[in-house]
Amino acid sequence: MMRLVTVEDAQQIVDIYNYYVMNSIVTLDLVPFSVKDFEEKIKTISNDFPFIVYEVNNEVWGYAYANTFRTKPAYKNTVELTVYIKHTELGKQIGKKLYSELLLQLKNQNYHVVIGGLTLPNDASVKLHENFGFEKVAHFKEVGYKFDKWHDVGFWQLTF
């Protein structure tokens, strides 16, 4: 089932995220987060933006949220999206379900543009975004360094 995040989800969310911090270039974070870090993140983000989880039998299998794209007031109708799926549950269309709900909420809240930033290569995330009508609008070469290698970052945009 899909529902709004609660602070009590922090441990499961940080477990999902830290797997990618330690084992993947999907995020360019280099240091694992603490539960307290994610409790603060949940409080801060969910006060202003949609933050949802996908749960099965009281276990969080994925989460997605919108957040500030840039802090200048002129950007207030643009948000950046994030989605992470528990690595053992990939391939079950959870990201698609989370994005469907998140995009619906953002559209209903009158946001105009949503941005997805992806470390490349990341075929699954590119496919997810493009299936929702996002278009690639930027590609920055070798801007992130992780696992002793330079990585590109691309940005995909959807305009409502």
Rank of each mutant, 00 (worst) to 15 (best):
M1P: 12
R3G: 14
R3S: 11
R3M: 12
L4S: 13
V7I: 14
V7Q: 07
D9P: 01
A10L: 12
A10V: 11
Q11Y: 10
Q11A: 14
Q11E: 14
Q12D: 10
Q12A: 15
V14D: 05
D15W: 00
D15I: 03
N18T: 05
N18P: 10
M22R: 04
N23T: 01
N23K: 03
S24G: 00
V26T: 08
T27D: 07
T27M: 14
L30W: 13
P32C: 13
P32W: 07
F33N: 11
S34T: 15
V35D: 05
V35R: 03
K36E: 15
D37I: 15
F38P: 07
F38I: 10
F38D: 11
E39P: 15
E40A: 06
I42C: 07
I42M: 07
K43H: 00
I45P: 00
S46L: 08
S46D: 03
D48L: 06
F49K: 09
P50V: 06
P50F: 01
P50H: 04
F51D: 03
F51N: 01
F51R: 01
I52E: 00
Y54E: 09
E55K: 07
E55C: 03
N58D: 10
E59H: 00
E59F: 02
G62A: 07
Y63G: 03
Y65H: 10
T68N: 04
T68F: 06
T68C: 05
F69G: 01
R70P: 09
T71I: 10
P73S: 12
A74P: 03
A74S: 13
Y75M: 08
T78V: 15
T82N: 11
V83R: 02
Y84L: 15
Y84F: 14
I85C: 14
I85H: 12
K86P: 00
K86L: 06
H87A: 08
H87G: 02
H87I: 12
T88M: 08
T88G: 04
T88P: 05
E89F: 00
K92S: 06
Q93F: 15
Q93T: 07
I94E: 09
K96V: 06
K96T: 02
K97N: 11
L98P: 06
Y99K: 12
Y99Q: 00
Y99C: 05
E101F: 05
E101D: 07
E101Y: 05
L102F: 13
L102Y: 06
L104I: 13
Q105R: 14
L106S: 14
N108G: 13
H112M: 11
H112C: 12
V113L: 02
V114R: 01
I115G: 11
G116V: 05
G117F: 07
T119M: 09
L120K: 12
D123S: 08
D123T: 06
S125D: 04
S125M: 00
V126H: 03
K127S: 12
E130H: 05
N131A: 03
F132M: 01
F134T: 03
F134C: 09
F134D: 04
E135R: 14
E135M: 10
V137P: 14
V137I: 15
K141E: 09
V143F: 14
Y145M: 09
W150P: 09
W150I: 11
W150K: 10
F155E: 07
Q157H: 07
Q157K: 15
Q157G: 04
L158D: 04
T159M: 04
F160R: 05
